[in-house]
Design a protein around this nucleic acid. Sequence first.
RNA 1: CGGGGCGUGGCGCAGCCUGGUUUAGCGCACCUGCAUGGGGCGCAGGGGGUCGGAGGUUCAAAUCCUCUCGUCCCGACCA
Length: 575
Amino acid sequence: MSSLFAPTLREDPAEAETISHKLMLRAGMIRKVAAGIYNFLPLGYRVIKKIEQIIREEMDAKGGQELFMPALQPAELWKKSGRWDVYGPELMRLKDRNGREFCLGPTHEEIITTLVAENVKSYRELPLLLYQIQTKFRDEIRPRFGVMRAREFLMKDLYSFDRDEEGMNKSYEAMYDAYCRVFKRCGLVFKIVEADPGAIGGTGSHEFMVLAKTGEEEIIYCDDCNYAANTNQASSIVTDIDFSLGEEEKPLEKVHTPNAKSIEEVAAFLGVDKRRTIKTLFYEAIYSKDEWEIVAALIRGDYEVNETKLKNYLGCLHLNLAKEEEIAKVAPGKVGFVGPVNLRGVRIISDPTVQKIKNAVVGAGEEDYHFINANPGRDFNLGEVVDIRLAKAGDRCVRCGAELKVTRGIEVGHIFKLGHKYSKAMEAKFVDSDGKEKYYYMGCYGIGVGRTMAAAIEQNHDEDGIVWPMSIAPYHVIVIPVEYSNGEQMRVATEIYDELKKRGVEVVLDDRDERPGVKFKDADLIGFPLRVTVGEALKDGKVELRWRKTKETKLYPIERIVDVVVSEIEKELKP
RNA sequence: CGGGGCGUGGCGCAGCCUGGUUUAGCGCACCUGCAUGGGGCGCAGGGGGUCGGAGGUUCAAAUCCUCUCGUCCCGACCA
């Protein structure tokens, strides 16, 4: 310990907000170089290597083969796949001395697809699962939370190549299983969530989310069955969708609603249930550089529009809330008072919740006025009825009907079925058994290594510091002699240390001339799962074993301590 | 990119509003010595700062103004 480079900090650094970030800095595991760029110090790097090793074992178990691809990639390949233009400013671009364009890879579909296309010719060589653990680069709009969202970060990415869809699905399932094993072995509690395939594209996708308050993603899940999804992707059943269906349609009426713009204000002013109101939102849907349209989205007042769903339905590249000038062209009235009743020449998308409302409150298209008793079909057009609703806690599960709950999660892994997306773009073909050339069915599977480490800390810490799961702890055990000047204690501590090392235990000896309190604090902060304390019980021939997690302490005779430690570690690492 | 905060020894901060009385201060860390040894102990001494950078205002700037860079937080984006 006296020679270990682990500069611990007594106080929280000002730059850190989340627990994992603070603790990694304080425990001397990482140091910042620039925004989103970090040094991993010896302790932190040991954790990284542990996680990598677990990943390797599980990838290999599924037939994965490790290789290593360059971080620096020629623009040419990205132009071929079309992503040079699509990826945007997040792609770190640079030029070499001859002015040739390159980028620092945020992912490796282009490289690997090219590699396989050039070297694999026959279905006999499939399926092929290739992976690497590489530094990736993304020029994040906003790096944050330490290594959780960094600009340079370690990622394991595996790519599967299959001859047909069935094979792809098999590979996907194998990876799904491998991912469960990896995260379980890392001591993480996680949920698997249906995700939006998003920019990477493809036909199916799951995210592995570590449950944590500080997670960046909101997820909705069902306790009764296994359903879980990103909020921006979730489907749900609205329990009270027909609450007003039995009513008789009353005549449309315009009422004065001064200054009542938001749903809250309108509902409160008129004394009606928010469920009886309809929100009208205008979006600008951009399809390409010169193709776009304004779309009106209608949704019941107590729900929010899920922009991801809307975007996916429209199939547009970007979706933004429309500017007031744009809205004015298609709808009368000021924002806050626009409604569906007198829209002209605009595409309308309605959520099913709107379809079922009777006698609704909507904007009147005139400042300070709303309509009451508006009825779909009679007073306004529903347009296209599509689920564009953001699911919320209290909705019912689409699979089993139980009540849905909301929590937050850290995305540590993401798996995709890519299908032909990249093999077509990169012209990657093989010859099948029927003698015909076919495109590979691909899948890609990522794990954020640093993020997994941060997530593990978010889930395993207490007021004193990190509580590492044995499987990814930088060391299994620390041996602390209490009195530096006590030769007997130092001697015994050193012996135990040597013996543990001989037995293959990852152990640190705190041989620093420090007060006991300092050593204990540091040990707790760094989070060694086990601590052997050589102190006053030595006069009875005993030393102390303490579990970091439970703070439970037991005395053992010196002769037995090494065996006990070894068996405790084995016990922990077994499942 | 929009909004906000912050840049003062290694770390955490005060001083700034109301310019000069400060030789720029405090806690922690660091070095030396003494003492001590079960939860960041004590005493004595010591080293370390272009006050983020540039320009300006002024007799005088850490302090006021302008620009700039960095960094963190919230939002939109994303594995």
